[in-house]
Design a protein around this nucleic acid. Structure first.
Lengths: 228, 228
DNA sequence: CCGATATCGTAGCAAGCGCTTGGTATGTGC
DNA sequence: GCACATACCAAGCGCTTGCTACGATATCGG
């Protein structure tokens, strides 16, 4: 009664080729393959229900094990979400740095960074969702201080490119770089809330659409507010 | 042991002129004045910690009463957040309708709607924050179906204006109206995450900044992607 | 075949959760 | 001055939470 029967109530979620009935996971492949799989399952639940609303029992159910068995792989529930977020951030920052290394002009680099942002929407959908929804909650724990650090580094990358573009006369000078960065960033990330693969546009299409509006605006004809 | 002493541990949060020490709230003013005050206190907590992470005991503590006493005013914790969100939405939609009633040209109306959006950032900061962070969770309850309805009405208002602007040749025809709306909406609302009154720009300044970029773009010189 | 290691089940603890109940003080209308 | 309504306290119920302790089983190199 403490827990309802895992074996009988298991839903065999039809996502990845899941182990239909419980069977001890054979130690195939690298040491932490099982662990990585558990992280992915948990990430999906965190994204769908929120970090706090997701219980360790639910995560275990999804994997076909009992909640206590999770603690063979992880110290705590927070360790799991930590892995979800840090994996995403590492990938993101690496991509940004690569774009910077091309040494292209600011407009080109900025466009590429927009594409990178939208490009992470699919592979890191769950992580981005968690980051959006549970940022405020997670931030209060010391162990997630690195989130703020990573965010600062990303901001620095964007702002420097915007400023460079202004200095080169490519971008209007009457906009605030930091403010502009924040609006771009938010527009990209928040798209995880409504973007679903298989819709009218893919993430590449979204990126081009946004780049168009971002640089050239929604209006037609001459720019009416040109100051710088 | 079941609950620690409310009187002794009360923190007398230095926000609004709070009742420093507990004293029975005298029935001054309208019948539900006390209730409204409790809603505001709860909204701040919901915004800061998230809906689920906020306990009824914390709300009661903030008000200087015991958790059970909250249920004299509210049926449930969800009733409280319901009041927070519906108050905001009612106000927002009323403002949008007023802007529509001016029958001005689409660009003017759209600009005004952007101003309205940013204008709600301060008076409804807590509600917007809750809406952003806890939308996914709250949406799963039937009682919050009206949230989706309200969102649909708002979307309809925006999209019709964008389409009208395209038909009038004011806006470029090669952008997707619905997609454009979503990006505008997101950019405005997500600003609650970083906007703090007293910074460099107030919400009116934010609005003008965004209107500039939205209509005329970030780049200088001729529009390079003009198609429609 | 054997021990090492990884993986998982079983059972349950301490704490905390939203919420309920029964009773008490303080006003207000008549 | 008594009935009534309001606003609250005190106590705790039933349940869920993250997590732990410990034993069982599977796999595999040697």
């Amino acid at each position: 009664m403490a827990h309802n029967g895992v074996v009988t109530t298991r839903k065999n979620s039809g996502t990845t080729a899941a182990p239909a009935k419980r069977q001890r996971a054979t130690s195939s492949g690298s040491a932490s393959e099982r662990r990585d799989h558990l992280v992915k399952l948990a990430a999906e639940l965190f994204a769908r229900k929120g970090f706090q609303a997701t219980t360790v029992r639910e995560i275990a159910d999804e994997a076909g094990i009992l909640s206590g068995s999770l603690y063979h792989h992880f110290d705590s529930k927070e360790t799991i979400v930590d892995e979800v977020l840090s994996t995403f951030l590492d990938d993101l920052i690496a991509r940004y740095r690569a774009a910077l290394d091309t040494k292209a002009d600011p407009r080109t680099v900025l466009s590429e960074m927009v594409r990178i942002g939208f490009g992470t929407l699919e592979p890191h959908r769950a992580a981005i969702t968690v980051m959006q929804n549970d940022w405020n909650y997670l931030r209060q724990f010391e162990r997630f201080n690195y989130l703020v650090k990573a965010e600062d580094e990303v901001e620095q990358i964007w702002v420097s490119q915007i400023k460079a573009g202004q200095a080169a006369g490519l971008f209007r000078a009457d906009v605030d770089p930091k403010l502009t960065y924040r609006m771009i960033r938010d527009t990209i990330w928040v798209a995880v809330r409504w973007f679903r693969p298989g819709g009218r546009l893919n993430t590449a299409g979204l990126a081009e659409h946004y780049i168009t509006v971002l640089f050239d605006g929604l209006a037609t004809g001459e720019r009416t507010t040109q100051k710088g």
